[in-house]
């Protein structure tokens, strides 16, 4: 038998495969790099009643960047998992000494990397639009903390959806709706401070992008600071990831019992 590498090797393996898939599907990435900035500008136009208002461009830009990550991490990973089930490769990937949740986390990392070109395209569009409207959005390296928090918390959500797929299969609609609900409830378009108190509380508790978006707005935009502070920003994604691993493991056990692991 060959030497067993640390579990990190398994994550690296998944990241490598995810990036190979990304290269294979480069056309999809190019389409996203074009459509997401257009989508961003349209949102600002609609909210601004036909005008690209400077006061809307920056807050929506931050939400849109976060949305890019949640879209990639949830949709890309969910559909790749569904593809594995449908093609019958999933069972083969289970014949490993390594925990399957690690593989999904590896896919999360590659999905986060896959989100970067689109996120950068949206950012570049936003910077240009803001500059053309006489505004300025200064880059602050501290935003890497909420960006990472968003990516980690979204990993928890993706784990739950992948676990549900193992048992219930045709849950694509749940994935689509959950991304849409999270996009709205996460404060992508409307800041949490503008939402009813109970809605903002639920969002800060459960929506993986909500504290991250709030923190990015706090860092990059002037104005009153909101949210539950940096401790919650770091704690919430870790909790969501932990819940994701626990739910995934339980659903995987149920799939093994019911025999639905590789069935579609």
């Amino acid at each position: 038998m060959s030497t067993i590498t640390p579990r990190a090797g398994s994550v690296a393996n998944e990241i490598g495969k995810g990036l190979l898939d990304l290269v294979t599907g480069w056309r999809e990435m190019v389409i996203q790099m074009i459509t997401f900035p257009v989508f961003y500008l349209l949102i600002v136009l609609f909210i601004g009643r036909g005008q690209l208002r400077a006061d809307l461009l920056a807050p929506v830009l931050i939400g849109m960047v976060a949305l890019t990550f949640i879209h990639e991490q949830v949709n890309r990973v969910f559909w790749s998992y569904q593809g594995d089930i449908q093609s019958g490769v999933l069972e083969q990937t289970y014949l490993t000494p390594l925990p399957s949740a690690l593989r999904i986390l590896g896919r999360q990392v590659s999905a986060a990397v896959a989100a970067l070109p689109t996120a950068l395209s949206v950012l570049a569009t936003g910077y240009v639009a803001i500059a053309l409207n006489g505004g300025r959005l200064a880059f602050d390296v501290r935003i890497l903390v909420p960006v990472t928090a968003i990516a980690v918390g979204t990993g928890g959500l993706a784990l739950i959806l992948c676990g549900l797929t193992l048992v219930y299969k045709r849950i694509a609609i749940i994935t689509q709706v959950s991304v849409a609900v999270y996009a709205i409830a996460g404060g992508t378009l409307v800041p949490l401070t503008s939402m009813p108190g109970w809605t903002a509380t639920l969002s800060r508790l459960f929506v993986p992008i909500a504290p991250g978006i709030e923190a990015m707005r706090n860092i990059l935009l002037t104005g009153p600071h909101s949210g539950w502070g940096p401790a919650w920003l770091l704690l919430q994604p870790v909790l969501l990831l932990g819940i994701g691993v626990a739910v995934f493991t339980a659903l995987e056990r149920l799939a093994r019992k019911r025999g639905t692991l590789g069935r579609y």
């Binding site: 060959s2 067993i4 590498t5 495969k17 093609s87 490769v89 069972e91 083969q92 593989r103």
Partner: peptide, 27 residues
Amino acid sequence: LEGSRNVYWTLSAWQNLVYFGRLKGMR
């Protein structure tokens, strides 16, 4: 396994074997 692809058709034979080797814990 019966009736399954067992390997990724979107990857090459080489990429598949290296991927599954590492999945099994090989360096």
